[in-house]
């Protein structure tokens, strides 16, 4: 990772990342632990796309899915009982929602390439929402 990438990653971590996780925690009504493999998602030569890619690929779908689930107290309670942690990484080479999400033992894992199909937000939110609903 070069200096350009380090700066872009730091800018995301200090700016959008905090806002996005705050929004997710506010929707959930409790603090969800995030474990992010920054090295795998911060690909070289894409520094200028970190903010848009990370936001749209990983975080906005979570926000959209949680809006549906936490629409009532029943959903908030079920989420709190089931979802403890979110892991975000780019290891399996997945660039479609169908292969990107898994849920086990309270851990939601998102394994998706950060700069492919960036604008397929609805598809990812739907896939994630369905997966979570099956596990809540």
């Amino acid at each position: 990772m070069g200096l350009l990438e380090k700066r872009a990653l730091k800018a995301f971590q200090d700016g959008s990342y905090k806002k996005l996780t705050d929004e997710i925690n506010a929707l959930a009504g409790y603090t969800i632990e995030f474990e992010i493999n920054w090295d795998s998602i911060a690909e070289d030569e894409y520094a200028e796309m970190y903010d848009e890619g990370f936001t749209k690929v990983y975080f906005t779908p979570i926000i959209e899915a949680l809006k549906e689930i936490t629409a009532d107290d029943m959903g908030k309670q079920a989420l709190q009982e089931a979802l403890k942690k979110v892991v975000i990484k780019n290891e399996g080479g997945f660039y479609y929602a169908s292969g990107a999400y898994s849920f086990k033992d309270g851990v939601l894992t998102i394994d998706h390439q950060p700069f492919n199909n960036i604008n397929n937000i609805t598809e990812r939110a739907t896939e994630l929402g369905e997966l979570l609903m099956k596990n809540l």
């Binding site: 029943m74 959903g75 079920a78 979570l132 099956k134 809540l136």
Partner: peptide, 13 residues
């Protein structure tokens, strides 16, 4: 198919 408890609870509601 697979459903979760939340879907059933909402179904009850």
């Amino acid at each position: 198919e697979i459903s979760g408890k939340l879907a059933v609870q909402r179904g009850f509601q």
